[in-house]
Every structure is written in structure tokens, then in C-alpha cells.
Design a protein around this nucleic acid. Structure first.
Lengths: 256, 256
DNA sequence: ACTTGACTCTTACCTTACGTCATAGTGTAT
DNA sequence: ATACACTATGACGTAAGGTAAGAGTCAAGT
């Protein structure tokens, strides 16, 4: 009569000793006998039952269900199997749509993101772009600038285009308005709008809250820079400076 | 400025209040402010973040991972997504093979099982079968007989055929031996063998252990019945009686 | 006989993402 | 003032074990 210790049985069946302890505890697989020292000893019969258990576990039944299936023969075995099948099918379907979503998300991220640094400043002569970057870097720190640029680069192209569009529009409106009165209400509103836009793209990614202080600072930034210019009645692509400054500012104020 | 209470936000996002409590607790989604009575109030920003959280949860990330992803933008977001994709694919594949196994198991059970009551007693005239069933029923109770019949019916056809074969053979050998000496050693051995066979088909399904007592009772059963007959030197299909009696006995002794 | 190393026992706390109370305080409409 | 809906905190429970602590056991080598 073969007797297996917990370790031996665990090796034979490929489960952990703890698992055998657990199965004993919940009455799913009791040892054939216990020695005087309460060592568990299993026989061939228990090995067979364990293999049955593992089969059903493979089929993803819960231990509770396995117990019920194994302890009353026949009857609802088929029903249980079929019930379980529909459950598994539901899970597989969910997984499939999940994977589709994931694929879409990935390809979205992959194709629409990671603009090259050049794309970030497209439309500007290289030297001009460099000059702006240096200025922003000096003002807000290289880290802040890098952070903001990295953030911008991982926007989707569509989002970036939208951001550019809105920034351009605001810059041009702002320019027009500054001619009149920098403190005027509409200017404040515009700033608020741009703030909201940037926040939106900046997203919920940053837990730090810039709050009113940053908001105010942003207003200062807008009205104090002389270079919101129009050429031939059109806003120049100063949005690059605009954005690098604004984003730099945000980055700085968001970094604890 | 919209402010949402826990309940309102929970309805908006389709999660439970407890979930919001939890997310607050683990720092995944903090309310915008707390009232004096420590009521949580959320803003639009928190709603957006919650929706992001739910997106990633949909993609089956753990809350911990979601926190990491949301709290540092960009960077390894893509890597995380792709890693996760392979993980999900592995799971889907496992599910698929699992479903195949299940299908096979089900069709096996379906096609090879559930003999009709007639098949159980095939080869016997109806009246004879009825007479045997009545006898067994009277002796062991209708419940016990039903249990044993139900058990038999869910055996695979192959298994049932094997069981029939072995029972027939043993019945015939037993008959031959009873001519000589009922108490002889070989008879005991035969009984033991049949006991083992029945146990095997009865399987590990029954946790109750009939033990030595039942074993002895089975021996009595065999030697005390007069009807193990041979016709033309062949064992008659008395296995039906044989089995209904034996299984009835088992069922009775296994039912606590 | 003694020690070492490999096992084994029980007990109990940890994990995920919440569900489900229990108890107590709060807000509001009648 | 009271009823009713809402909220907060704390605690325990879930599934299937992992991990560890503290203590006992077994066989082999010295």
C-alpha cells in the first residue's frame, strides 16, 4: 500500500503543500490516514481524486463547485459543465472585445503620438525655435521645458492640431484685444478659456492642482509678452513660443 | 462649479459608493474637497479622472497599475499597454483551449452517457426486469434503487459495457464455484474483485466509505441468492438483477 | 546518544477589489 | 420635531492560496 506524504503528493500532482493543507481543511481532499504525529498520509485513491480536482480546476471551476460535483455523482454534472461553458464563453467574448479595444488604443497611441521635436515647432525657422526654447528654458528651467515638450509630443496628432488651432485663435484674439485694454474682462475670459483648454489637454495626468495662483500667473504671462504679433492681419505661428512658455509654466508649477 | 456627492458621482460613473471610498483611501481618486462634516465632494476634474480609471479597469489593469499610469504621463504608457496585451492574449488562448476541453468533455458526457432505463435492463423481458426492480426496491428501498440506477445511467456506454462484461463473468464463475464450497477462499477473492470493480465505477464520487462492514454484506448478498444460473453453460444476463441489487446495497450504505 | 538537515504540524496574517453590515452623525422637507 | 435620505468610519468576509513563525518529528551520520 503506497503512502504519500504531503510533499511527495504535492510533487506527484504539481501542487503546493499549502494547497493540500487547504484542501484537507475545507474537506475537499482528506488524507487516507494521519500518523500519530498528525502527519498526513495519502493513498492512491486520494491521488486519483486530486487529479479529478485538478481537472475541474483546469476547467476553471471553483473549489466549492468541484466539491459539489465530486461528492454527488452524475446528475447535474452535465448541467454544471454546460453552465460553466456559457460562463467561460462570456468571459472569452469579453476578453476579445477587450483585446480589440486594447489594439485600437495601442495603434492610436502608436500612430498618433510621439511627434518629432521638429513637428512640435513646425513652421518656425530652426534658429527661431531654438531661441524660444532657450528663453523658456532660462525662465522656467530645462526640466520644466522638457516635461512640457514630452507631454506635447505624446498627444495625438489630431489633438495637437486642435490645440494649435485653438492656441492660434486665442493668440490672435488676445493680440487684437491687447491693443485696447489688458485688464478688460474679455481678456480675462480668454485667458480662462485657454487655461481650460490647456488643462484639458494636460489632462487629469497631473495630480497637483495649479489652482488660482497658477491661473493668475498664466494671465501675467499672456499680457506681459510683447510678441503676440499679427502679420498681414494673420496670427503668426507664435503658438510655439506661446505653448512652450505656457506648458513650461505649467510644468514648473505642477512639479512638487 | 459642479460638485458631486459620492452617490451622485457613483451614479454618474456607474460604480458603487464603496468603490469611491476605496479609491479615496488608496489615493487613486481624492475628492476635490471635504465639507466640514467630512462629506466628500467631487468636481468635473474628478469625474474625468474616474472615467480614465474605469477605462484602464476595463482593460483589466490593477488599481495599483492604474495609479502608476495615471500619475506619470506618457512614457511607458505604450509599453504597459503592449505588455498587458500579451498577458491578455495568453489568457484568451488559455480560455480557448479550456473551452475546447470543455466541449470535448461535454460531448463525451452527452454521447456516452444517460442510458435509457430500457438499456439498463436490455436483454431481459420487461416483466422480469420489473420483478427484479420490485424485489430490490422492497429490499433496499426505492430511494436506494433510484440512486443506483441514476448512477448507472450516467456511466459511459463503454464503461457500462465493461461493467456488464465483468459482472457477467464474475456471476458465471461464482455460480460454478458455489457448486463446490461457498466458504472457499477463491469465492472470497472473487467477491473482493467485484467489490473493487464496483468501487472503481462507483468512483471516488462517494465520500462515505462502506468499509469492511459493507464488504462483508456484499459477500452475503452474493452467496445467499439462488438465482445465479447457467443456461447451456452460459451465464444468463442476470447481471441486471445482480447489479441492481449490488448497487442498491451500495447506495443504501453510502447514504448517511 | 547527539546533532544536523529535511520534513511536517498548526496558527495566523497578507493579498484584490470591493460587498456588506453596524453605528453614528448630517441635511432637508414636512 | 420628526422622518427619511444620505454620509462617514470601522470592521469583517470573500477565493485560493503565499509566506512566515514557532514547534515538533524523522532518518542519517557522527
Amino acid at each position: 500500500m503506497e503512502r504519500y506524504s504531503v510533499k511527495q503528493l504535492s510533487r506527484l500532482a504539481g501542487v503546493s503543500v499549502r494547497t493540500l493543507h487547504l484542501y484537507d481543511q475545507i474537506g475537499l481532499l482528506k488524507p487516507a490516514i494521519r500518523t500519530e504525529a498528525r502527519y498526513r498520509l495519502y493513498g492512491r485513491e486520494q491521488l486519483l481524486r486530486l487529479q479529478q480536482i485538478l481537472l475541474y480546476k483546469e476547467l476553471d471551476f471553483s473549489l466549492h463547485e468541484i466539491g459539489r460535483i465530486l461528492d454527488k455523482p452524475g446528475f447535474d454534472k452535465l448541467k454544471a459543465l454546460e453552465q460553466h461553458k456559457t460562463a467561460l464563453e462570456a468571459r472569452r467574448n469579453r476578453l476579445s472585445t477587450l483585446l480589440q479595444t486594447l489594439d485600437k488604443t495601442i495603434s492610436h497611441v502608436k500612430n498618433n503620438t510621439m511627434l518629432t521635436p521638429e513637428e512640435l515647432y513646425e513652421g518656425l525657422p530652426k534658429e527661431t525655435a531654438e531661441a524660444y526654447r532657450n528663453e523658456a528654458s532660462a525662465k522656467y528651467g530645462a526640466d520644466a521645458l522638457a516635461t512640457s515638450e514630452n507631454y506635447l509630443r505624446q498627444l495625438s496628432k489630431a489633438d495637437f492640431a486642435k490645440l494649435k488651432e485653438e492656441s492660434k485663435e486665442i493668440a490672435s484674439t488676445l493680440f487684437a484685444m491687447r491693443q485696447q485694454n489688458p485688464e478688460s474682462e474679455p481678456v480675462q475670459k480668454l485667458i480662462a478659456r485657454h487655461y481650460a483648454i490647456i488643462r484639458q489637454f494636460w489632462g487629469t495626468a497631473n495630480s497637483a492642482d495649479p489652482q488660482a495662483e497658477a491661473y493668475e500667473g498664466l494671465g501675467q504671462l499672456y499680457v506681459s509678452d510683447e510678441r503676440f504679433t499679427l502679420v498681414d492681419g494673420q496670427a503668426q505661428p507664435e503658438y510655439a513660443l506661446f505653448m512652450s512658455k505656457a506648458m513650461g509654466y505649467f510644468a514648473k508649477n505642477s512639479l512638487t
